[in-house]
Design a binder for these strands. Structure first.
Lengths: 338, 338
DNA sequence: GAGCGTTATGGGAGCGCTCCCAAAGGTGCG
DNA sequence: CGCACCTTTGGGAGCGCTCCCATAACGCTC
């Protein structure tokens, strides 16, 4: 009776025995080594088929020290993850690029403190070969922990200064400056801005671009801070209108906020773009269909996903080599709102 | 020199040595066994802290035969996964329920054939304790493979007859019948329906409900088939209008299609609900904000996620006991479109 | 046909952990 | 003071796999 305990999946050893070869040879066949005779290979393949053998990944990982799994961690709630087209686009880029690698992608979201502990030691080497981090907030301890554990990781978006992980970022500052310059050169004199969250570098950089563009024009900055959401766009627009009834342009750090602002502008009886010009940021799919259609800053989101995967691949395969950070270009898409 | 090869993470053995205890005792502390003296426990805890020890999950899984990881597999493209509020709601329910279990959630999407192979053996026991399957199409081989491998799995949505996995479903048929009855009892005489994809049971069941409700009223069915998308709603509405210019109501198997249909109706100069009543299905967030607001069938999507997790938990913990399928109730939400 | 290089093969060692058993130490009671 | 019993402990065995080394088998050449 050499049958194993109740319906455990078959092991390599059993496959080898059935094929009449040694464990080593069976392993070579499974892993596609060429140093195997055709006879042996066929025997093993047939045994695999008959037994329905699937390699035990835990056992394999234990010896190879890798898992062929990469995690994409999004530090946001499901609502934002699913609500904002941005994430869908990154994920599309990431999955496309992953299809060209031997690795499997895992998606994890973590807004909730309670989840953090579990996630955390899930991500510690031995379970994941690398991590893609999206939508990082400044106070997030994850980058530090990953660095400490030596887990290869790439960030989407530039981190604040203490984080040393490689990143792929957009030229947020340049894009914002482009937008504001467009506003000024088309004759606007009182240009306000609704910012993103200040604990995210994308938010800070877009604000910085706004300030940059104002330099030398002797315009006073006029800023309300939002959080990228449509609601915060409405709220901020209302506040702006109250503070500066004479404003004639608003640069919003996200399309969602621009949409909110336009709604509020309409409610206040201001015409877009006649009375007030509006520019958004993201070039999200909806920006094409708003009324009027939204002038906005395009950022190559899908590319970002692709580049992140490529960088992570390098990090995993050649841990010794440093990979340079990447900043992707942005450009202005002029439609009807400005 | 008993130091291990270059910067490998510390092992249990090293922790034990540093704490001056045996490997067994260290393991007991890590796993929270009570049979340990306070002195030993503290020594181990301190060593863990100092060394930054994290258990190697591959090694643990190899012996315990489980991984404390559950996968949520969505058989759709990123576009649909992120585009339809339905998925966001299920995911919310799932993550909430998972927070109460010791397990970690993994999200995977698979529309692409190429990904399938990798996913497939990723899901084979030893790497995942169980699987939650969403948005299953009839020809999907996954359920069969999971069954064959003995991987515990729960479906969201009723499968076609050959699949024997336990499921959580909505009362699609009942909800659809409710909608159509509402239409009839409010005086509509020519009630059409735009169906969902016929290779998904939700689509078939909603159509069945439509037929049921028509029985005994001597109305001829008038059906166009869509795929749940807004575009297919427009296309189908156009076709319907051509085939039966006298129609005075349309029951759509999804809110997205209802929105498409309303757009098309408006383009054709029909007023909603005056000329044509429209009812959707899903009670998605947008249905509140359409003009006119959409009468629709509510389904408890978040609950579905919760129940799926609970069922999977039972399946994993008590593999011997059968778990009964669940059908969640739906109800009509009357707004202004019908 | 002896000697050589080359290719194919079997199986031991060991990855880091949990499980379990046997032994040591401690306590209480007659 | 001795014995039985309980708590705490150490460490061997083994999970299923890959890696690697020693050996076997084969094919040449001279």
């Amino acid at each position: 009776m050499n049958r194993r305990s109740p319906n455990r999946p078959p092991t390599l050893e059993e496959v080898a025995e059935r094929a009449g070869v040694g464990r080593g040879t069976a392993s070579r066949v499974i892993n596609g080594s060429v140093q195997v005779s055709d006879a042996a290979r066929n025997a093993v393949l047939q045994a695999v088929e008959e037994l329905g053998y699937v390699p035990n990944r835990a056992a394999r990982s234990l010896v190879t020290q890798h898992t062929d799994v990469v995690a994409l961690v999004v530090s946001e709630s499901e609502d934002r993850l699913f609500g904002e087209p941005f994430f869908a686009q990154v994920v599309r880029g990431v999955t496309n690029a992953m299809a060209r690698t031997p690795r499997q992608l895992l998606l994890t979201m973590t807004h909730r403190e309670a989840d953090r502990g579990r996630l955390n030691d899930y991500l510690s080497r031995q379970h994941v070969d690398g991590v893609l981090l999206l939508s990082l907030h400044d106070d997030d301890p994850l980058p530090g922990q990953l660095t400490a554990r030596g887990v290869p990781a790439v960030l989407g978006g530039r981190p604040h200064s203490e984080v040393t992980l490689p990143f792929v970022d957009m030229d947020n500052e340049g894009g914002a400056a482009l937008a504001v310059e467009h506003l000024i050169s088309s004759g606007r004199r009182r240009v306000a801005s609704i910012t993103g969250p200040v604990d995210m570098s994308a938010g800070r950089q877009r604000l910085e671009g706004y300030h940059q563009a104002l330099v030398g024009h002797d315009f006073r900055p006029l800023v309300e801070s939002g959080d990228f959401s449509e609601n915060s766009g409405r709220r901020s627009a209302r506040a702006l209108l109250e503070r500066a009834p004479d404003l004639d342009a608003i640069f919003c750090a996200s399309d969602q906020m621009a949409i909110g602002a336009m709604t509020e502008l309409a409610a206040a009886g201001r015409r877009v773009p006649d009375d007030v010009a509006v520019i958004g940021f993201d070039d999200s799919p909806i920006s094409r269909h708003t009324v009027p259609s939204l002038t906005t800053v395009h950022q190559p989101v899908e590319d970002m996903g692709v580049r992140m995967v490529e960088m992570l691949g390098q990090l995993i395969e050649k841990p010794a080599e440093a990979v340079p950070d990447v900043v992707l270009p942005t450009h202005l898409v002029v439609r009807n709102s400005a």
